[in-house]
Computed example of a mutant assay.
Amino acid sequence: MLTIKKMAQRTLQFLVVFSFSCFSVVLAAYPDRPITIVSPFSAGGDADLAARSFAQAASKALGQSVVVLNKPGASGVLGSSQVISAQPDGYTLLLGRTGSQAILPAIMPTNTRYNWDNYTFIGLLEVNPYGCVVSAKSSYQNFEDLAQEIKKRGKTLNYGTAGRLTTNDMGPRKLFSLLKVSPQNVPTQIPYKGTGEAVISLMAGQTQFSCGSLGSFLTHIKAGELRALMVTSDKRLDQFPEVPTARELGYDEMETIVGWSAVLAPPNLPQEIQAALARAMQNIGKDQQWQSLTARTGSIPRITSGHETKIFIGKQYELYRSLGEELDIIDNPN
């Protein structure tokens, strides 16, 4: 005859096995409903374009619809925070960007609400070549012309950005440091609501230069309205073979300034779901339509593993943390 204790033990064993079996069935069926990828920025920008091209390719790779949810606010903090608190079931993903995932946690840790490594890392999607541009009407014919003017005129020069603590902001700050311009005499930043406004002001002569992801300037460079003076990629870009790299110009450290997009998930995502998403990422990397869409925005497709992505973003965080300490702007971006 079974004792009450033995009956309880067998019941517990049954429940454990049953629960594990049910969980395994759920994982085996993943995904069995639409997936949402949160883009923590407004529609129409670089992040949104990356999220939508990913969603299109991922829908094919996973056999389920992937929809984009734009959740702008607080420079990407709002949407990024939402994903951290979501269920770790693979149905809520994040389109991580340089500013929201590396710069803000490094420079504004008090107000960011999350650390750079609070996520499950799925993979890198793309890198966005970074560079500095001027109006085609500008007297600055090459990067050295601009560098000399920055040293000479200092704060009387204006440069446009898409806001503080973006790559548009941090790239020039790094450059001013390399040029050994005193913090009191660096060019004046004019922050706009987005890169589009910054470009308009540059072409109108209200600012003298701007730095950022070249995808934001691509159309205007091709139209002959802007002139690219330098790129931070490790080699010259096929689209702009005449534009020298930062390394060629003697500013090797600028190579670390680059835009990127990555796919992240809430913490504690089950290994089986991570594996399913990793397989999908590999298939996306082979998708010629996705490659074409990504290249069309001026970005370079670059699929990496979750482990490699964590290492990469960690290095980006350390880069901006170090720069923030050097400039004494931690939790005080002004």
Rank of each mutant, 00 (worst) to 15 (best):
N111P: 03
T156C: 09
Q13F: 00
G215R: 05
V77K: 15
L277V: 02
V68F: 03
R296D: 13
V26N: 10
L319Y: 03
A43L: 15
T297C: 02
E253V: 06
A29D: 15
Q141F: 04
L12K: 14
T110W: 13
T36R: 15
T219Q: 15
S216R: 14
A265Q: 09
W290R: 03
F20I: 14
P241H: 12
Y159L: 06
N168E: 04
N158Q: 01
T294F: 07
Q82N: 10
H220W: 14
E248K: 01
R296H: 13
F176P: 08
S75G: 11
L269T: 11
R302A: 09
P129R: 03
Q239Y: 04
N158W: 03
D48N: 15
A278Y: 01
I313D: 13
S21C: 09
S85L: 15
D287A: 00
N334R: 05
N158K: 09
G298E: 09
Y30W: 04
G196N: 08
P88Y: 05
P40Q: 04
C22I: 14
L178V: 00
R164F: 13
S39N: 13
N115I: 02
A280H: 07
M281D: 01
I122D: 03
L249D: 13
L202T: 08
M170Q: 07
H307P: 05
K155T: 13
S213K: 01
G298I: 07
A55T: 01
A47L: 03
E318N: 00
G45I: 06
V17R: 08
A198Y: 10
K6S: 08
F209Q: 09
R227I: 14
A275R: 04
Q141M: 03
G154S: 11
I37H: 06
M108L: 04
K315V: 02
Q274M: 00
Y30Q: 02
V199W: 05
M203H: 11
Q289E: 14
